[in-house]
Design a protein around this nucleic acid. Structure first.
Lengths: 342, 342
DNA sequence: ATGTACTTTGACACCGGTGTCATAATGTCG
DNA sequence: CGACATTATGACACCGGTGTCAAAGTACAT
C-alpha cells in the first residue's frame, strides 16, 4: 500500500480480511453487516485515511450531493468587483448548502459564453441555482432549454409572465409600496425614481410599479420626466441623478432601485448642495452593508439574503426530490435611517 | 433514446455509426480521428445535446479540473454574515478560476467539523485553497496532515515560521510600516494598536510588528497599555476602543488590524466626542467597501483581493503541475482618506 | 507482388465504487 | 430432523467514460 496513491476499498478489504462489497456496505453503515465486521472495517479505513472516491460513487449512483450556482456577470462589464448584493447571496447560499450537507459548485458566467446547464448535464450537480439581474441576451431561450431537458433549477429574481421556471424572490412590488408609503407619510409630494423601469430589469420594473401605483392611489402621480434610467452601479446612479437635476426636475423624494444607485444619487445631491433628508428624502433597495455606513445613512428596503439563500437551496432540494413546489416571495422590510428622518 | 435520461457516448456511437471509442476520441479532438468522422460525431452529439459525464471522466483520468476552497468560519460565531474581506476574496477566486477554466467547489467550514481534505482526498478537486484568519484549534496539525498526504494546497495568510505550506499573502509587515510612516508624517506621537497581537492571529501580529518596529525606529515607542485586543468585527473594535478610553490611555493615532475593527473604533471615538482626524488619526487594513463610505472615510492599507485571488489560483495550479513555486507576498498600498487628513 | 510506414478504427480492460443476486451460516418451529 | 426464515457475506455486473493494443485499410517504396 505505502504512499502509492490513495487507499481504495479493496485495500481495506484486504487488510480487514473481508470482501470489497462488505467494506462498501460497512462504511455506509448498512444494517446488513455484522456489528463486529463494521467496527473492524472502520478501524482499517481510519488507519489508511480512506475516503470514498466521489467520482466513482457519483457515477454509480447518478447523483452528486452537490448544487451548482451560476452567477451571471453584471452587465456593467466591470472586471473588478462583483455586485455586493450578489456576493452576499453567494455567502448565504454557501452557508445554506453547508447546512443541508450539500457542496456548492460555483461558476462565474460571462454573458458571452455558452452556459447551457453544463453542470447538471455533466452530472456534477443535482441542481442549479441561477443568480443574476435581468433578462438580457438569450436568457429566456436558455431557460426554456433547461426546462426542456428537465434540468432541476431555481432562479433568483422576478417572476416573468409566461416563464415556467421556479423562482425565489423578494416581493419587489411590496417593496416599492413600502417605499412609497414611507415617503407619503413623510409628506413628500414630488417623487422621482431612478433605475431601469423596463422589462429588461424585471425586478427593477416590479419595484417601480409598486412604487408608482401606491403613489397614484394617493394622488401623487409620477411624471415621465421623474424617471431616470440607471443600472445597478454607484456611477450610474450618480449620473442619472445629475441629469435629473440638470433637467430642472423638481423633487423632494428619491427612490432608487438599488442601494448602489442610491449611494450614487446621494453623492450627486450633496454636490448640488441639497440637504438630505431635509430637501430630498432618499430610499434605496437591498440593504447592503454600505447603506448603513454612508452619511447620511440610507433608508432602504431590505432583502433578507440569509433567508433567500435558504429558500433557494431548500426549494431546489424539494424540486430534486420531486416534490411539488411553488414560487416563493420573501417579505421586504423597510429599514428607516437618516436619509428619510432627522 | 427519447427522454430516457441523458445521452451517453454509446448513443452517439450508435447514431454516428462508429464505435464508442471513436466517439470519445472525436469529441476530445484527438488527431487520431478522421476529419469527416469528427464532424459527424460532433453533429450527432450536438443534436442529442450530449455532455461528457464528468464523474466517469474524472474517475478514469483521476483529475477533475476543479479547485476547492475551504472557507473557515470566523471565530466570531456570528451566524449571519461572512466577513466582507473574505467574501471579496471568494469573489475574486471565483473569477480567477473561471479564467483558468477550472471550476470551484466551495465549502464553508465550521471550526468544529473535521475538514481533513475531504475534497482532494475524495478526488473531487485537484487542489485546495485555504482561506481564513488565524491559527486556531488544531489548524497546524491539520496542515501537517495535508502535507503528509501530499495534498496540493495553498493558504491565504501569514507565513508561520516552521510551517511548510505554501502561502500567498499580503505583505502585512510592510503594511504595518506604511501605516506607521503615514502617522509619523502626520506628526503623530502617541499611537495605539487595536487587534490581536499574538501568534493566534499571525497576520495581525505581523501587521503589528511592522507598525511597532517602524515607530520605534522613529523613537515613538508603543507602550503595553497602547495595545488593545480585538478580533475582526466592528463590535470587537468598538469595545476595545472604549476600554482604551476608559483606561485613560492618551493617543492621537489609532491603527486597527482590520477595517471592521477601525469602523468600530471610529464609532467609539465619535461617541467619546473625539474629532477624527484632528484629535485622532485612524488607519485600518483591508480596504473593504465600507471604508470608503463611512464618515470620515477611512484611510487604510489596501490588500489587492483581485490579484490575491489570481495568485492563489495560479500558484495552486503550478503546484499541481509539479512546478517549483515559492511563497508570494503581495504589495500593500496606502489609501489616504479623511480619517488621517483634512 | 511484397514489405514497410502511416492512418484510422474497434475491442477491451480499467477507474472505484454501488446494487443485485446467490450462497453459506445460523436460528426457529412443527 | 427437515422445512423455512433470517442474517451475513462474496461474486459480479454496472455506471460512462479513457487509454492501450491489435488490426484493418491505404499509400508508397522496393
Amino acid at each position: 500500500m505505502k504512499t502509492k496513491g490513495k487507499a481504495t476499498s479493496f485495500d481495506i478489504a484486504h487488510f480487514a480480511g473481508v470482501s470489497q462489497s462488505t467494506v462498501s456496505r460497512a462504511l455506509r453503515n448498512s444494517p446488513l453487516v455484522n456489528e463486529e465486521t463494521r467496527r473492524k472495517v472502520w478501524e482499517v479505513a481510519k488507519k489508511l485515511n480512506y475516503k470514498v472516491d466521489k467520482n466513482a460513487s457519483n457515477l454509480r449512483t447518478q447523483q452528486s450531493a452537490t448544487l451548482a450556482i451560476l452567477l451571471f456577470e453584471d452587465p456593467t462589464g466591470d472586471e473588478s468587483q462583483i455586485n455586493p448584493f450578489f456576493l452576499n447571496m453567494l455567502g448565504s447560499i454557501t452557508r445554506a448548502c453547508a447546512k443541508e450537507g450539500y457542496d456548492l459548485l460555483v461558476s462565474f458566467q460571462s454573458i458571452s459564453q455558452d452556459w447551457r446547464a453544463e453542470y447538471e448535464d455533466s452530472h456534477r450537480a443535482d441542481g442549479i441555482i441561477l443568480l443574476g439581474y435581468g433578462d438580457y441576451m438569450d436568457y429566456q431561450e436558455r431557460l426554456q432549454n433547461l426546462l426542456a431537458q428537465d434540468t432541476k433549477f431555481v432562479c433568483w429574481g422576478a417572476k416573468v409572465e409566461g416563464r415556467q421556471d421556479l423562482t425565489v424572490s423578494c416581493d419587489n412590488y411590496g417593496g416599492g409600496q413600502l417605499a412609497a408609503q414611507h415617503l407619503i407619510e413623510n409628506g413628500r409630494k414630488h417623487c422621482v425614481f431612478i433605475g431601469d423601469a423596463s422589462e429588461h430589469s424585471p425586478e427593477f420594473l416590479t419595484r417601480f410599479k409598486g412604487f408608482q401605483n401606491t403613489l397614484e392611489q394617493h394622488n401623487i402621480p409620477l411624471g415621465e420626466r421623474s424617471i431616470a434610467n440607471a443600472i445597478s452601479t454607484e456611477d450610474s446612479g450618480y449620473h442619472a441623478t445629475r441629469s435629473l437635476l440638470a433637467n430642472n426636475v423638481k423633487f423632494d423624494a428619491l427612490f432608487a432601485a438599488s442601494d448602489l444607485i442610491a449611494i450614487g444619487a446621494i453623492k450627486a445631491l450633496k454636490e448640488a448642495g441639497l440637504k438630505i433628508p431635509e430637501d430630498v428624502n432618499v430610499i434605496g433597495f437591498d440593504n447592503i452593508a454600505a447603506a448603513n455606513y454612508i452619511t447620511p445613512s440610507l433608508t432602504t428596503i431590505q432583502q433578507n439574503t440569509t433567508l433567500a439563500g435558504q429558500m433557494l437551496v431548500s426549494n431546489l432540494l424539494s424540486l430534486i426530490r420531486g416534490e411539488q413546489i411553488v414560487d416563493t416571495l420573501l417579505p421586504p422590510k423597510l429599514i428607516v435611517r437618516q436619509s428619510t428622518t432627522k
